[in-house]
Design a protein around this nucleic acid. Structure first.
Lengths: 360, 360
DNA sequence: GAGCGTAGTGATAGCGCTATCAAAATTCAA
DNA sequence: TTGAATTTTGATAGCGCTATCACTACGCTC
């Protein structure tokens, strides 16, 4: 018994509303393949002949096709959601991080979910990690969360891929996207030395982040290489906050023989150092040079603008999404977990906060 | 040549993956109605008999049913993408804006796309607006873009809903989510007056943003209401940047009889004022009080922390998404465009930058 | 040459929901 | 009481995508 013969779908006959967006069918038709093949290419997944892949990709580009995220997550039922978990909401590079992550996510038609974990104990962190592991397919961890053994181990145990972003050191269990903090600090120190500075003070970062140690080690290494001794009284502990920078700089500049340059482990502390110098009637950079690290908005907000190290956070975030997506796919295909350490280039940005030390 | 006998589909036999969530079908079955009726009830939409509605709602509650956002947006084909366009990447509240927008978007299974428009002429803005209008169903516009006639008119002409966020003044054509800048500035001024200040300086915001004018007017109104004359030489033009705050504060504090309080139109300029005060050997708040506006991270970064007006940007962004989605739906239903002006509550946050003026 | 893997591709059937329209139930007018 | 107007409900057909599996080539072994 034949069923209703109504069949000819789509085209313009549908009574249904029409969304203007390009669909996978149009791409398929144009490329002369089946929608399924397009899907495979777009997802970089299965085995598609190189020639076919090439053709489809070109068509996708021509038509400017973007997968519909809703349809995708509905069909896959696997809701490819990636969580970005952050702790300190006022962290200076948060917006750049978000912009980058969102950009990467939207290019890949992946849903990005945000989560703030504040004031957590190790136990609640564990619980939160377990919970998030059930609702997303991957996690991006900026510092200081990526340093938390509790969080990482829980996530790894749950089998979900994790990417640590801007964590100082490569961790054996989880992938990372970062700059070479050691090398960057070394270069910055060399920059200062090249101006003739030798009494260079250093304000350390928060001790719970490996990047802090690396930056300090880079500083030490450059000083040692130049044969300039590091005066231990010119090394102050900071915590990456403006406040801590204020205190550290205060101690540094209250000395009868203050340093001629201050290397702060991040921009906020450097800005604080500038503020303290001003309060004491010193001109920056004439009386003292100050440099920071990270190139956050703070660096260009204060006056004079800070010489600093640029971390391409947005690009790093976008590439974290890529990395994560690849891991997720691999995992779904039953392949073994692969841990990647992606080191991206930093840039020494020279602005107006460095000059040669005053003679004498 | 018999084919594979796999046949018995659906029900629990489906070879397809299974998502654990309760579906509309289960609710329908349990309630003894059709899925369509459940859909209607859940969407509060059409005409459903009260008794039926009641029954369905009870069942929904019993089963703890939550609509699948992906399926919903797919079926409704409701423009799934919303654009958030911003200009100044280092704008202090960008991250809060992003967090809020992303949160709202993910709750509604809407795709959020970001776009940066920098260094644009009126012509390129027009072109960009026309282009974006083709690829998204709605647009969120933070300042200063929401003040651009070119952008707004182009978008409105294309018929796509627009929400201006934190724009000072209600615009006839487009919906807005904002605080009452006038009232907020008024309250802040009253706060200063209540401490006994009368020589209050004001640093104005960028003249291209209506919020600037409103804040200034609020200041004037409060002064007038208190019968305190505004010294015109104590009013400086700023541009919302730290640098402009620096210059304005410099002029203000160089006077032989400096003000006892400075009301800056945003936090960055207030922070600059603090810095200038410090440089001149003045203590904040003992020698001079300084207040800001917006409650951006800057407000709590500097020392002392700034008394300021909190704009709940994240919440405003989330509610912009809601507003937009509703407009999009209305538009699809062929209903007339409705323009909403949503004014949310601000908060006067008292911190450490205000004290009574020094006697004498 | 029959048998049997193995890449590469396509046909089919949904994922959970809603638009559409027809059918059924109800109300109302005459 | 009956026919018409109205309200309420349900059956059906997709939204755009992907999981699954059948099928086609093309090797390869024995």
């Amino acid at each position: 018994m034949q069923n209703a013969p109504r069949k000819a779908r789509n085209s313009a006959t549908s009574t249904r509303r029409k969304s203007a967006a390009v669909t996978i069918h149009e791409v398929a038709q144009r490329a002369g393949v089946s929608p399924m093949t397009v899907s495979r290419v777009v997802n970089g997944n299965a085995n598609v002949r190189a020639a076919t892949r090439e053709l489809v990709m070109r068509t996708v580009r021509e038509l400017n096709y973007t997968p519909n995220a809703a349809a995708r997550s509905l069909a896959a039922a696997s809701g490819t959601r990636i969580a970005l978990i952050y702790t300190n909401p006022s962290s200076a590079y948060l917006s750049e991080l978000l912009v980058g992550a969102l950009d990467g996510a939207s290019k890949a038609a992946t849903q990005l979910v945000l989560d703030t974990w504040d004031h957590m104990t190790r136990a609640t962190e564990r619980a939160a990690a377990r919970k998030i592991a059930q609702s997303v397919a991957g996690v991006i961890l900026p510092p200081p969360l990526c340093e938390s053994k509790a969080v990482c181990s829980e996530l790894v145990a749950a089998g979900i891929p994790v990417v640590a972003i801007a964590s100082g050191r490569f961790q054996p269990d989880i992938s990372g996207v970062r700059i070479d903090d050691f090398r960057a600090a070394q270069e910055m120190t060399e920059h200062l030395l090249s101006f003739g500075h030798s009494r260079i003070a250093f304000i350390k970062g928060h001790p719970n982040q490996t990047a802090s140690a690396l930056r300090y080690e880079g500083f030490q290494a450059a000083m040692a290489a130049a044969g300039v001794p590091v005066d231990p009284t010119l090394v102050q502990q900071g915590f990456f906050t403006y406040r801590s920078g204020l205190e550290a700089a205060e101690k540094l500049l209250a000395r009868k023989k203050p340093p001629t340059a201050i290397f702060a482990s991040n921009d906020d502390m450097a800005a604080a150092a500038v503020s303290v110098a001003h309060r004491r009637g010193m001109d920056v950079p004439r009386d003292i040079s100050v440099v920071g690290f990270d190139d956050t908005p703070t660096a260009t907000t204060v006056w004079p603008e800070l010489t600093t190290i640029r971390q391409p956070i947005a690009a790093m975030a976008a590439s974290s999404i890529d990395l994560l997506l690849r891991s997720i796919r691999r995992r779904k295909d039953g392949e073994a977990r692969v841990v990647v350490d992606h080191v991206v280039a930093h840039v020494l940005v020279k602005r107006d906060s460095v000059a040669a030390p005053a003679p004498g």
